[in-house]
Design a protein around this nucleic acid. Structure first.
Lengths: 207, 207
DNA sequence: GCATAGTTTAACCAAATAGTTAAGACATCA
DNA sequence: TGATGTCTTAACTATTTGGTTAAACTATGC
C-alpha cells in the first residue's frame, strides 16, 4: 500500500488550484483528477462529491489566507514602522498567492456554498485576531504626529491600495501594458503605498 | 407583430443581470428566460447560443462600464478639486452598479472568452480617453503644493481605495458587521479617501 | 502465499442543462 | 382574408459532467 495520505494531499492541491482558478461552477472533476495525475474513480474513492471536495478546499484556503494575513499584522508600536511592515508583509502574502483573494471575493458573492459562514466561523474562533487588528491600528495611531482617523476606513484604504493592483492585474497588464511580474514592481508599489499613506499628495510645509 | 426590439432588449437586460451575478459558468439559460418573462424557445429564437449571448452582454457591459468611468474623469485644473470630483464621481458609478467590477475582474481572469480583447479594443478605440486619464492627472499634479508621484501608482491607489470596499462588501458586511448600504457610508468613504489622498496620516506642521 | 488497501481501467448511469422541433395561437398589415 | 412575423407550449434531443460499478492489477506486510 502506497501512502494514501500522499494521494489525498495530491488531490487537495490539485483541487485547490482548479477551484481557485475557475471557481465552483467552472471547475471540472475530470480536470482535478488529471492535474492530480489520477482518474476520476480514485478521486471519488477519496472524496464523495464535488460539493464535499469544494467545501474542504475552500475552507482550507480561506483559513490559510486569513491566518496568513492576520499573522503578518505587525506589532510595532511606532506608526511609521507599523505601516511599513504591514504594507511589506501584506504585499508579500498577496504576491505569493495572488489568486486566492479574487477567488474569495467572487465565491463569497455567490453565497450558495456557505463561504460566508466559513469566514465568519474562522474570524469568530480567532476573535482575538480580529480585535487585535483595529486595536493595533488604534494603538499605533496613538503615537505622536499622527492624525486620528476612523480605523475602519483607514484599514479599507490600506488593504485596497495593496490588493487592488493584483486583483486588476490582467487589466493593468494586458490592457494598459504594465509589467507587474517583477520584484521591482512590488518594491515600487510598497514605496508608493507607504508614501501615500504617510504623506498624501500635498507638499508639507518645512518646519 | 409586437416590438421584437423590446423583447431583445428585455433579454439583454435579463442576461446582463444573470451573467453579472453568476458569471458565464454559473449562469443558466433557463434563468435568463425566466427573468425576461419568456421561454427558452424564444430565447434561442433571438440568440443562437449561450456563448453568443454572453459575448454580447459582456461586451456591452464592459464598454458601458469603461465609458462611464472615463466619462466621469473630471477636467478640473486644480488638483484638490480634481481629486474631490474624481472620488465623488467614481463612488457614484460604483454604487450605482456595484457588481460589474467584480464580474469584470473575475471574468477577465478566466480569459477564455476574449474579454481581455474586448477591453483592449475599447480602450484603443477610445485611446484619447485613456491618454487623458494620465494626462489629466499629470496636469492636475502640476499645480502648486502637490508632490510629484508616479501617475500609475497614484491611479492604482485612488481606484483601489474607492473600489475595494465594494468588492469586499460581503466580507465587510457579513463578517465584520459594517453596514455599507447607506448613503452615509458612501459620504464617509468619500471624505476618508479624499483626506487620505491629500494629507496622508502624518500631522502637518502649521505654517 | 495471501489478505489487504491503493490504484487502474473502461464502461456505464443519472442528472443537469444547452439547444431543437413542430404545431399552433395571436396580432398586424397589405 | 391571408401572409407574415412574434410568441407560446411542450415535448424532445444532444452534450456535458458528476458520480458509479466491477473486475483486475499492484505493492506491502504478516
Amino acid at each position: 500500500m502506497k501512502q494514501d495520505t500522499e494521494t489525498k494531499l495530491n488531490i487537495i492541491q490539485a483541487a485547490s488550484k482548479v477551484f481557485i482558478e475557475r471557481g465552483m461552477d467552472g471547475a471540472r472533476m475530470q480536470d482535478i483528477a488529471d492535474l492530480a495525475g489520477i482518474n476520476k474513480a480514485l478521486l471519488h474513492y477519496y472524496y464523495n462529491s464535488k460539493e464535499e471536495l469544494y467545501r474542504l478546499v475552500a475552507t482550507r484556503e480561506i483559513k490559510q489566507a486569513f491566518a496568513e494575513l492576520l499573522a503578518v499584522i505587525p506589532e510595532e508600536q511606532d506608526f511609521r514602522d507599523w505601516i511599513r511592515s504591514f504594507i511589506h508583509n501584506y504585499l508579500q502574502v498577496i504576491t505569493k498567492n495572488p489568486q486566492v483573494t479574487r477567488f474569495m471575493l467572487w465565491e463569497i458573492s455567490q453565497g450558495g456554498n456557505g463561504i460566508s459562514a466559513i469566514i465568519r466561523e474562522f474570524i469568530n474562533r480567532k476573535d482575538s485576531g480580529r480585535m487585535s487588528v483595529f486595536e493595533t491600528i488604534r494603538k499605533a495611531m496613538s503615537g505622536p504626529g499622527v492624525r486620528q482617523v476612523d480605523p475602519i476606513h483607514f484599514f479599507m484604504s490600506l488593504i485596497g491600495m495593496c490588493v487592488y493592483p493584483f486583483l486588476a492585474r490582467p487589466i493593468l497588464e494586458n490592457v494598459m501594458g504594465i509589467d507587474m511580474g517583477t520584484e521591482e514592481f512590488v518594491r515600487e508599489r510598497e514605496e508608493a503605498v507607504y508614501e501615500m499613506v504617510l504623506y498624501g499628495m500635498e507638499v508639507r510645509n518645512a518646519l
